[in-house]
Design a protein around this nucleic acid. Structure first.
Length: 480
RNA sequence: GGCGAGGUCGCCAAGUGGUAAGGCCGGGCUCUGCAAAAGCCCUAUCGCGGGUUCGAUUCCCGCCCUCGCCUCCA
């Protein structure tokens, strides 16, 4: 697979260092509230990345952390009257639930920051010993940015050109840093942290944010590994700082490849609670949309382009046209798949494991290859639909249909798209009462008793179902 | 001010130095007791101005506009 690398700013071929398993790290969520659809754009694309590697025959080892000790988790846990653990466990579980809904593969390892404080302390000690960090009078420890020659290489940010305090976030407790660019490795205990402090050689306190990833990467992936990923906002300062910490410590290149995901926009602008365009999976579910529909929208733009999630229609009403479009598109895919399944004589969907052995995707090969070329998900989707139009299902032999279906499902598996039930499947699941009414209507139609047939259709409709006549008979589907 | 991304059909969104995928919506047709559904078909010269070139939407320069980041936000 070829993928753009933030460090070199070019598309490069990926290859595992050890020649066998591709080992990568993704910066995970801070568990202090529900993740929003922007967060999920990142996690979904990372998931497509992993699936595409695996389905192309590349074994992977995927580590994604949980940030469960930082300013926000401590602050909000206290505000809620719960312990930090109770609080972060709750939001972690919610995150897992949402991830499952979105059909994200679980990482092979999901280390949490609070469980790796000894590793972080050890790393701080090593950095101090090597002259890259210093303790301040209040018991905090800072990284001396000037001590690391390569600082700024990833983000290409010349320190001298940093607009000082541009974010207005320079904390008042930073007066004892040697330089404004220096960042905290260890933060001295403060009253407002409550019970959330740990002992260290520099006194009681807690670790700084950037350090957890460096420590856990080193613990589980070693001094050097294949790829590191996160949202674009993490390029600076988070990943820049991780590199400074890790490489100053180990003397080795931290990661061979940097994979960054561009942000999601909502109706052309940044998502924010104050604008009321801040969406969670839960909210979309309440509006009647499935996780698969959201997933489809999230992969509909290339990961290095801003994706504009259209929530409001032309009249300014929050009707989610993007999700409605995704629903239609998924329904078409499902219809096509159902036709292939019927033709092949095998209704079962091929399991992920079986798809790993597919070497040639038939009509869907080029769509799969789009993913191997810098994870071009929109092109892959386009090629899937082009192929669907070209494949004449009725002209295929059962074997050919089965073969094409494997190719189709390999791409769908790489994209992580689960198909919705088709009308035919829903007919089979309709309650007996509805089915009986539909049968009665069929009889009325056969007798050309149109008033009775229409009356039955209305009755079915009143019960929440819709009858659609087909060549063979009829289909039933729940009304939206 | 610095760094970065981008302006392609009504909306979303790929792509290419030789006259632009796909999805949604819309329109037409077929099917149909009606309706719905389904199937098929149709719709753009790529922000503006220069330049390079036989030829640019695709390369270069300038301009306009949008968006993101600039120390703890995916």
């Amino acid at each position: 697979m070829r993928l753009f690398d933030t460090m070199t700013r070019e598309v490069r071929e990926l290859a595992p260092r050890d020649g066998k398993t591709f080992r990568f790290y993704c910066c995970g969520p801070t568990v202090y509230g529900p993740a929003h659809i922007g967060n999920f754009r990142t996690f979904v694309l990372q998931d497509v990345f992993r699936r595409s590697l695996e389905l192309s025959g590349q074994a992977t080892f995927h580590v994604r952390n949980l940030t469960d000790v930082d300013d926000k988790t401590i602050r909000d846990s206290q505000a809620s009257g719960r312990t930090l653990k109770e609080f972060t466990d709750h939001w972690r579980d919610r995150f897992h639930h949402d991830c499952d809904q979105l059909n994200l593969l679980r990482p092979h390892l999901e280390p949490s920051a609070v469980e790796h404080i000894p590793h972080q302390i050890a790393m701080i000690a090593e950095l101090i010993e090597k002259g890259h960090a210093y303790a301040s009078a209040d018991g905090s420890v800072y990284y001396r940015v000037a001590s690391f020659e390569g600082y700024g290489r990833l983000s290409r940010l010349d320190q001298r050109e940093l607009k000082e305090g541009a974010s207005g976030a320079v904390a008042d407790d930073e007066y004892d840093k040697d330089s404004v660019s220096d960042f905290a490795l260890w933060k001295a205990r403060r009253d407002e942290d409550g019970d959330n402090w740990w002992d260290s050689p520099w006194g009681q306190g807690r670790p700084g944010w950037h350090l957890e990833c460096s420590a856990m990467c080193r613990e589980y992936l070693g001094d050097s590994f294949d790829l590191h990923s996160g949202g674009v906002d993490l390029v600076f300062p988070h990943h820049e700082n991780e590199i400074a910490q890790s490489e100053a410590c180990t003397g080795h290149v931290m990661a061979d490849h940097w994979f960054h995901l561009t942000h999601l926009l909502v109706d052309g602008g940044k998502m924010s609670k104050s604008l009321g365009n801040f969406y969670t999976l839960d909210q979309l579910a309440k509006a009647g949309f499935s996780p698969a529909e959201l997933r489809y929208v999230l992969i509909s733009a290339h990961y290095r382009q801003p994706l504009n999630f259209v929530a409001k229609d032309a009249d300014g009403n929050e009707t989610f046209p993007a999700l409605l479009g995704a629903r239609q598109a998924l329904q078409r895919l499902a219809k096509f798949d159902a036709a292939l399944a019927a033709r092949s004589g095998d209704p079962d969907i091929p399991p992920y494991e079986a798809l790993l052995t597919v070497k040639e995707g038939g009509s869907f090969q080029s769509a799969f290859e789009s993913l191997q070329n810098d994870l071009n998900t929109p092109e892959a989707l386009g090629r899937v639909f082009t192929a669907i139009k070209a494949v004449k299902v009725d002209a295929l032999s059962p074997d050919e249909a089965a073969s094409e279906r494997m190719g189709l499902h390999r791409v769908l598996a790489a994209l992580g798209l689960l198909l919705p039930a088709t009308a035919g499947e829903e007919t089979a699941e309709a309650p007996a009462e509805i089915a009986a009414l539909a049968e009665a209507r069929r009889a009325a139609k056969a007798a050309k008793d149109w008033p009775e047939a229409d009356r039955l259709r209305n009755e079915i409709s009143a019960l929440g179902w819709e009858v659609k006549d087909t060549k063979e008979g009829y289909e039933l589907c729940p009304k939206n």
